[in-house]
Design a protein around this nucleic acid. Structure first.
Ligand SMILES: [Mn+2]
Ligand SMILES: [Mn+2]
Ligand SMILES: [Zn+2]
Ligand SMILES: [Zn+2]
Lengths: 146, 146
DNA sequence: ATCTATTTGCAAATGATTTGCAATAAGGGG
DNA sequence: CCCCTTATTGCAAATCATTTGCAAATAGAT
């Protein structure tokens, strides 16, 4: 199963989602969506900025907006820098990553542990609306050789 | 099973661990260990600093040292601020948390998903030395009522 | 008490992310 | 197509957590 719902979303489709919410379809936003659209791994704001021609602050503002609109998902690899991935139409984007501690290579992980585990924890402590954040870290094949 | 190996570690025992590694037993370090010793949930550097009388930079430096010495474990709740917990003697500190999205209440979680899951992922992608970072988020009982 | 390598306090530097504000551009109406 | 109103941008300055340079203080050994 494809981890990402990167169903070759076309820009038109994406900008339409913006329009539906009374947001303006600006140059920077299209550029950012276009960059994210062709990536399979999450990108940092700076990486996106380096591929574009617009202010870094605008990248941050746009990503925040897109995140609020559930068009983009934020990931945290614990290195103090947020990473972003584009979401598909009806995709909540819930998935995980396996990251190399040496070279930062990223592998997309679609599977997850049993939902029972999460439900049990929620019930046990009376929490509602429980979700989780999970990332794996290790040494990739290349870095093991080196 | 107790999530934390907070076996009432006494300061002497803790400072001994420092001494063993040729590190000096200074006032600030004892204070920090003493604060962590009586906490059951992870604390931020600032929280520790507020309970003490030493420079914030010293708190950061000490925590870094203690982390390198595996006496303290760092956690990341995704809010851009690291949290620290004291580790027991032979405890690698691997555990998780359930955090309230509203009031930040923390519940310690000792259980974990099956190790097979992690092994399978490691094998599938040829990664070695794979570990993970997992935290749960939800609405605590109090905040549900409110 | 003395000596020397550590460690501390303080201030300045970093790096990621946010924000104020004036200039610019998007989308609607005429 | 032009105009108007309002959202959005670029740029610089501000924030926040964390780190670092450096001289003064101090732990631990002699
Ligand atoms: Mn991904
Ligand atoms: Mn804990
Ligand atoms: Zn690698
Ligand atoms: Zn709560």
């Amino acid at each position: 199963m494809a981890v990402h719902s990167h169903p070759r979303q076309n820009l038109a489709e994406l900008t339409a989602r913006l329009r539906q919410r009374d947001r303006r379809i600006t140059g920077p936003r299209q550029l950012i969506l276009d960059v994210l659209r062709r990536e399979e791994h999450p990108l940092t704001a700076r990486q996106i900025h380096d591929l574009l021609d617009c202010d870094l602050a605008t990248v941050y503002r746009s990503l925040r907006l897109l995140e609020e609109m559930a068009m983009v998902k934020r990931f945290d690899f614990g290195d103090g820098t947020a990473r972003f991935e584009l979401l598909g139409q009806n995709d909540d984007g819930h998935h995980h990553h396996l990251v190399c501690r040496e070279c930062s290579t990223v592998v997309e992980i679609g599977e997850c542990f049993s939902g029972n585990f999460e439900n049990r924890i929620a019930r046990q402590h009376g929490f509602a609306n429980v979700s989780h954040r999970l990332e794996f870290f290790g040494l990739c094949p290349e870095c093991q050789a080196a």
